[in-house]
């Protein structure tokens, strides 16, 4: 078997193991949240009998281990369960149109992935190009300006960046909508227009990290003998950076890109709230507020899987970027 394939399979197995451990952590942590759905929904004046009844209905009176394995078995069968809030709704309204957690999460998750995708398509090439240019013109005014600019944007709160962009791109120059109005059956063009402002905000948030790693990884290599060799061959400075340094600098850059992409999926709550973007982040926060445990757990698991998958992808890509692994002796 090709060594790279072997390592990929190993990492994949490790990823699954990590996901399993994370599932235990999620389940335990969610169960340790103070209060439960029964108390949250019935309020302070609830009678102990009513609370107990709801708990019995939802299976909350079962022992922890039994509930965990019940949940895990459902998950493995692709059954994310039914939202408690929906159950409550059903008992009031007579059991019409019962939506599963999967039905609830799917459109939100698709929206989040779309936003993350648009942001990544803008942010990654932008950050890497800036990093390459900053390395090429290192210690120049351009380099310093780029560093100051990206550091400022990463240091500012996200809502602040969002409002600044709204001010300039929606209020003063009404180019883009300030509210991301996404509805069913929206056309791709409208969807892109609606997503652009949140995506630009996220770009500002994640660029600094990726750009600075690109710059540092390249500059770190400039003292290597093979870079000196390239200079002594009369290769132009731009070509030295792009052709000789960058191909050897990918591993750390890819890892930082993966971390930032994961952030785009899991850390966008604030931006969603500001633009009223119907993503998974808002759903998640609402579910925590309501102690809607099946939704919280499913969201956590999706976030964890996103992190694990992206890191796995980063590992694999860094390996493929290494000729020693790609072309064994």
């Amino acid at each position: 078997m090709h060594p790279v394939l072997k390592i990929i399979l190993q990492r994949l197995a490790l990823g699954l193991l990590t996901l399993f451990i994370v599932s235990i952590v999620i389940f335990t942590a969610v169960n340790m949240l103070p209060g439960d759905f029964a108390q949250a929904i019935l309020g302070q004046s609830a009678t102990p009998e009513a609370v107990a009844a709801i708990r019995r209905d939802l299976g909350l009176d079962q022992p922890y281990v039994v509930r965990y394995f019940g949940w895990l078995t459902d998950m493995l069968q692709g059954n994310l369960g039914i939202s408690y809030a929906q159950l409550n709704f059903q008992s009031n309204m007579g059991g019409q149109n019962l939506k599963t957690v999967a039905d609830q999460i799917a459109p939100r998750f698709a929206n989040t992935m779309f936003l993350a995708g648009v942001a990544a398509v803008i942010a990654v090439p932008f950050a890497v190009t800036l990093g390459v240019l900053a390395a090429l013109y290192r210690n120049s005014a351009f380099d310093k300006a780029v560093n100051v600019g990206t550091l400022t944007s990463i240091s500012s709160p996200e809502f602040f960046l969002a409002y600044i962009l709204v001010l300039f791109l929606a209020v003063l120059n009404p180019l883009l909508p300030s509210i991301a109005n996404i509805y069913q059956g929206i056309s791709l063009a409208d969807r892109l227009t609606a997503t652009l402002l949140p995506a630009l905000t996220l770009t500002l948030v994640v660029t600094a990290h990726m750009m600075r790693m690109t710059r540092a990884a390249i500059i770190n290599l400039l003292a290597s003998p093979y870079i000196e060799m390239a200079r002594l061959k009369g290769v132009s400075p731009f070509r030295i950076i792009v052709k000789h340094a960058l191909p050897n600098a990918w591993a750390p850059i890819i890892n930082v890109i993966a971390l930032n992409l994961a952030y785009l999926i899991t850390g966008v709550v604030v931006v969603e709230v500001v633009f009223n973007y119907p993503g998974i982040g808002q759903l998640f926060v609402d579910a925590v507020k309501n102690r809607d445990i099946p939704v919280v757990q499913a969201c956590c698991l999706i976030f964890a899987a996103a992190y694990i998958l992206l890191n796995l992808a980063a590992d694999i890509l860094s390996m493929l970027a290494n000729p020693r692994l790609r072309h064994p002796k």
Binding site: S224, P225, Y226, E228, M229, A230, R231, L232, K233, G234, V235, K243, H244, P247, N248, P323, R324
Partner: peptide, 21 residues
């Protein structure tokens, strides 16, 4: 001039060849 009329052979060829090409 460099690489065209004047060339250089380094002590450690293993370190002076770019590993990526």
């Amino acid at each position: 001039l460099l690489g065209k009329r004047i060339a250089y052979v380094a002590q450690s060829a293993a370190a002076s060849f770019n590993p990526a090409h």
